[in-house]
């Protein structure tokens, strides 16, 4: 780590504190994860003019960050830049309260550096199922996505995603060049856990041998099973003995009454 004058830390902190409330016209918090999908390139990442990520390594991601909802500016610079005045890429993003967003540093099809945002689907999943979101953020043309041999989406362009809900478990995901059997990336036996949204980012460039998959996993989306059906014969029906008892008692009472009347009649 660099040694930094205290004043600079204070200034940067003040910058964030001042900017963040001003930018959030709406109240609430958004959850933001930053994903680095540009091969071989270390970056600094800035949020609203303050340094957020120092020496952000390629093929890594942050833990989910809480950011006030509202309008924000994200910028990427070369490492050790003094500020974000000369970014290699930047993005103005409006974060809705309670939204879950991934910001991805990516290469465009022609190899330019770009920041893109994806809103992550964190809606509930039925018990036993998983969600997968395959995102094209690589320096390559349109792609077909296959899941377990079946086309999930065809002609996915850079910056787009394909989302599917599948039974939880291991699934084979394949990325082909659009309209061909030219396999760009094969991810056999990808574990998609129940109640998660597994975000698969196809990043890098096949031409330079840097094409790979990065993953972010959002957990805790599961609904519980609706019920536990564990019997269908009625062999231990609680209602049956009660019925029997009521019946027997009624029978005894009737016998008693009948006997009394009989006794009265014969007397």
């Amino acid at each position: 780590m660099r040694t930094t004058p205290f004043t600079l830390i204070a200034a940067a902190a003040a910058g964030l504190l001042l900017v963040a409330p001003a930018a959030s016209a709406q109240s609430g918090i958004a959850t933001v994860t930053v994903v680095h999908g540009i091969p071989d390139t270390v970056l600094d990442v800035w949020l609203d003019g303050a340094l957020l990520l120092d020496d952000f390594e390629p093929s890594s991601l942050t833990e989910p960050l809480s950011v006030p909802a509202g309008d924000h500016q994200i910028a990427m610079t070369a490492p050790d830049a003094d500020d974000d005045s000369d970014p290699v890429g930047s993005l103005d993003v409006s974060l809705a309260a309670d939204s879950n967003v991934s910001l991805v540093a990516q290469l465009t099809e022609v190899g330019d550096i770009e920041l893109v945002d994806f809103t992550n689907d964190v809606s509930a999943l039925p018990g036993g199922t998983a969600r997968v979101s395959v995102r094209h953020v690589a320096s390559v043309g349109a792609a077909d996505i296959l899941a377990d041999g079946e086309p999930l989406v065809e002609g996915l362009e850079g910056g787009e995603e394909a989302v599917a809900e599948v039974p939880a478990g291991d699934h084979d995901i394949v990325v082909n060049a659009a309209g061909t059997d030219d396999e760009l990336l094969a991810l056999p036996g990808t574990s998609l856990a129940e109640g998660t949204n597994t975000l698969v980012f196809a990043v890098g460039s096949p031409a330079s041998g840097t094409f790979e998959a990065l993953v972010q996993t959002i957990t805790g989306l599961q609904d519980a099973p609706a019920a536990v059906p564990a019997g269908n014969a009625g062999l231990v029906d609680d209602g049956r003995p009660v019925t029997l008892i009521v019946g027997l008692v009624a029978l005894a009472a009737m016998m008693l009454v009948a006997r009394r009347r009989l006794d009265a009649g014969t007397r």
């Binding site: 780590m1 660099r2 930094t4 600079l8 830390i9 200034a11 940067a12 902190a13 910058g15 964030l16 994903v35 680095h36 303050a50 340094l51 957020l52 990520l53 120092d54 952000f56 390594e57 093929s59 890594s60 991601l61 942050t62 833990e63 960050l65 003094d82 500020d83 991810l187 990808t190 698969v200 980012f201 790979e212 998959a213 990065l214 993953v215 972010q216």
Partner: peptide, 14 residues
């Protein structure tokens, strides 16, 4: 400058 908050970063390779 130094980052204003310590953000944990992880390897993301599948």
């Amino acid at each position: 400058p130094t980052a204003v908050r310590d953000v944990p970063v992880h390897d993301a390779r599948l």
